[in-house]
Amino acid sequence: MIGASPMRPTVLRVEQLGKIFGSQDPAAVAQTGPDAGSEKSPDGSSVVAAWDVSFDVASGEAFGVIGESGSGKSTVMRAIAGDHSASAGSVWMQRRDGSTSDLLTMSPSERRALRVDELAVVYQDAAEGLDLNVTAGGNIADRLTAAGCRHFGQIRERAAELLERTEVPLDRMDDLVRTFSGGMRQRVQLARALANRPPIVLFDEPTTGLDASVAAGVLDLIRSLLEELGIAAVVVSHDFAVIEMLTSRCMVMQHGRVVEQGLTDQLFEDPQAPYTQRLVAAARA
């Protein structure tokens, strides 16, 4: 080990995560994947959306998951987030109290409690992460009150602080999120996700669907936040630029499997797997 190593503790470890939709026939695993050219089993009864997915993330580190649609990257994210169940594997998480829990064995209510202040998710569709019929401040108040804050003044103060940090004009704090532009909604979603200082944040295509210049701004913001807050992040995207800007390590998925995993710059400059080489060549073209 060199010097006072800057290595930080692993806070999220995904082990052999698998998700099969439809018939849970284990035979489907061998019949699907990059070699089979599909995530669907030949008889169509199963979709092996993700299989044998393993990676870990330390605090202060951002890990990327890149792939085309149908690659299983969002399935992995949603299984970690608890938005849907998994078929196999474990997702170990370092808890605030120092213990370690497997998220996949938790009850739905335990997982929801986790989402209050230990694990936050920023979705592509702001409507999934926000209540559009509530004000920007109210969306943050939701998380703060869920964590037990009962002081109106403190809620206002913290909401203003978060909105300021995510570059939402404070004079819009009391406007309904429905009246916000797409980029501004993502900023509010970020503010809400960070409300209770979660040690882990998952990003699912956080800038997809935004105009290029707006997306660049949101991306900048996410990068600064990751740098400053020392959170562990998982970033799921089909966009090389997003993964390149935000993550230091990443993996490539295709047809529900991991085809390659490595340092992000190495993966883009010296891709090993044929599929990754094709993907990089296409992105550079």
Binding site: G138, A141, D142, R143, T145, F152, D174
Partner: peptide, 12 residues
């Protein structure tokens, strides 16, 4: 929490 949000929004 959503009940609290409605009280928050009322007050705001």
């Amino acid at each position: 929490s959503r009940m609290w949000v409605s009280l928050y929004e009322d007050k705001v």
